[in-house]
Design a protein around this nucleic acid. Sequence first.
DNA 1: TTGTAATTGAAAATGATTTTCAATATCAGG
DNA 2: CCTGATATTGAAAATCATTTTCAATTACAA
Lengths: 142, 142
Amino acid sequence: MSEHPWLIQLNEQGYRLTDSRRAVVEIMAESTHALTPIEVYDEARSAHPALGLVTVYRTLEALEQQGLIQRVHQPQGCQAFITAPAGHQHLLLCRQCGETARFEGDDLETLIKSIARKTGYQISEHWLQLFGLCPNCKKGQA
Amino acid sequence: MSEHPWLIQLNEQGYRLTDSRRAVVEIMAESTHALTPIEVYDEARSAHPALGLVTVYRTLEALEQQGLIQRVHQPQGCQAFITAPAGHQHLLLCRQCGETARFEGDDLETLIKSIARKTGYQISEHWLQLFGLCPNCKKGQA
DNA sequence: TTGTAATTGAAAATGATTTTCAATATCAGG
DNA sequence: CCTGATATTGAAAATCATTTTCAATTACAA
């Protein structure tokens, strides 16, 4: 049987392949929503009922270190994870259902350079995130 | 004695003025760093030793509701607070010492409208934050 | 000055996350 | 295909941040 690319990457990094990891990867890799550890736990147990919450935490940590998923910061909390944006993308999150979309748009470079000059800071990272309602939730709203 | 403007605002909103609140406000209003509840607690107790941590949490919550302070999201955690930016400012944070600077720069409107059109999302909020080293920490680095 | 309702701090409760640990499973080497 | 060293597991306990509960205290309006 062929393994998910994330699992192959983990394996290449020296991680062993287990059913627990397979279950967590399957859920995280498929989801377009930000998921908390508990949510991953609940969903992943349908594929692997013996899964423990601790293992979910450990697997999420490994995936984050590999750059495959990332933590999402939201007004209501910062525990959820999503698949990491490819390349230089930013996030757009639905406040209602947690659905995510991505976009690019980096004419931020000019702004950042100008801020660096004005403040004297050496800028190494930036976060840009948009919040709103996805097309689906927008409908239900009106 | 004349009270700090934040205390006056709290008072006008029906909050009573107590030494606990005065101690917390004094620390938060003066700081250019993001401070966690425990840090506020430690610092504020030099002015008011009887202060309890619970009261710090409650006061921070009141100040946040009044829009006087705001929670800061950082890679290392999201528990710290700073004085709320005036008007439409964004944050620049030093990863080393937590020092904060602010900047404006909202030609984001164009970007946001274009993302809204492309994705169908109704965008209601955006977060933009920069991270780096403040002039002081930059010196110690090299 | 006084009464009442807001506020306090301590302790207990909660919730998320991490650590500990003995049992189990993966997988490299024979 | 076995086998053994070692990574991994899940449960329970520990930790850490935050919230709730509650009886005592305090601010402040009358």
